[in-house]
């Protein structure tokens, strides 16, 4: 029986490369196709066609931001061939918006935020965090078509293949976008020269201890020194100090960089849920009782307004890592 996997994507991003890896891990999936929706361009299609393990790239829909009402029928039509056993999307806001809608249309369940795909005799099982990551559930889907969103930080992005390219094809755009039910009106994107939070190798995050939005400049300087991104706690975002999309946590972004530096962050359960899988965790806080120290590899009890400028000086003087 055919048992391919379809990766539903909104561009040739690192998160999608991780989703391709997860799709490959679904044991019975012989081939992985990538369905590019949304703003995906021909450049994205060519990029995805060069990824290891991708059999074909299908470009669906117009070159514009897509609503879920528009995207879901395209995915549904692609599944109509019956060739796919798994449908995988990265658990980005795109994947989380579109995939469960497809599931609703099809009347099937979805496994959210998978962090591991394992073989268990009778097929694959999925591991996913629940209760803000305080527990891990191992689950098996009883569906004949298995829909998954996968946490990008948990899967190594696939590399580029050394030779050859996957086949690229295009789907005709549906006649009417979502039956005219919804219309994309506009957007307000945060412009940043720094890497994307969820893909950055270094994340420097700040909390209430920063005392103001202006003081996040201190963290930006450290991040720039290390080629990293800047994140924040819910408290700092709620206070209006930084943009919403900088929130790291259970309901914000999940990060798992090589190095996470938490500055002036006490470490609420909800924040820890978003960063505790980082490889190396540094915490700088003047309160030695702060819960973040319980997950930190290196803790520094200090006034951040002394420590952070010192840290920047030291980093400047350090030879750059190759």
């Amino acid at each position: 029986a055919s048992a391919a996997a379809l990766v539903v994507a909104d561009g040739a991003t690192v998160a999608v490369r991780s989703a391709v890896r997860a799709a490959q891990a679904c044991a019975s999936s012989s081939a992985v196709d990538v369905l590019l929706l949304g703003r995906s361009s021909s450049a994205d299609a060519n990029a995805a066609a060069a990824w290891e393990g991708v059999s074909s790239v299908i470009v669906g829909g117009a070159d514009q931001p897509l609503t879920a009402e528009y995207a879901a029928p395209i995915v549904q039509a692609q599944l109509g061939s019956g060739a796919y056993r798994h449908v995988v999307a990265a658990s980005t806001t795109f994947g989380k918006n579109v995939l469960p809608r497809v599931a609703g249309v099809l009347g099937v369940s979805t496994v959210s935020d998978v962090i591991e795909v394992k073989e268990d005799g009778g097929g694959e099982v999925f591991v996913r965090p629940i209760y803000a990551g305080n527990a891990l559930a191992t689950v098996r889907s009883k569906e004949s078509t298995i829909l998954l969103t996968v946490r990008p930080t948990a899967f190594e992005p696939v590399a580029e293949r050394s030779e050859g390219l996957a086949e690229v094809s295009s789907l005709a755009a549906p006649e009417e976008a979502g039956g005219g039910q919804s219309r994309w009106v506009g957007e307000d994107r945060t412009e940043s020269s720094r890497p994307d939070l969820t893909a950055a190798g270094v994340v420097v995050a700040g909390g209430r201890g920063l005392k103001s939005g202006d003081n996040f400049k201190l963290l930006e300087e450290i991040a720039d020194e290390l080629g990293g991104a800047v994140g924040a706690t819910r408290a700092a975002v709620d206070l209006g100090w930084v943009a919403n999309d900088m929130q790291v946590g259970q309901t914000g972004k999940v990060v798992a960089p090589e190095l996470y530096i938490g500055v002036g962050i006490s470490g609420a359960i909800q924040h820890l849920a978003g960063m505790k899988d980082s490889k190396v965790i540094v915490a700088i806080n003047k309160d030695e009782e702060a819960p973040i120290f319980q997950v930190a590899d290196y803790g520094l009890v200090a006034d951040l307004f002394d420590a952070v400028p010192q840290l920047q000086e030291k980093l400047k003087a350090l030879p750059k890592k190759q």
């Binding site: 527990a135 889907s141 350090l318």
Partner: peptide, 30 residues
């Protein structure tokens, strides 16, 4: 339709250490 096979504790992180100052922190990270 999704069978929960078991629920486990997330892996515990190794015990961390406190450093005395920024110099020691940078040295350890390096």
């Amino acid at each position: 339709r999704i069978e929960i096979l078991h629920v486990s504790e997330p892996p515990k992180r190794a015990q961390g250490v406190f450093v005395n100052d920024v110099d020691e922190l940078v040295d350890k990270l390096h």
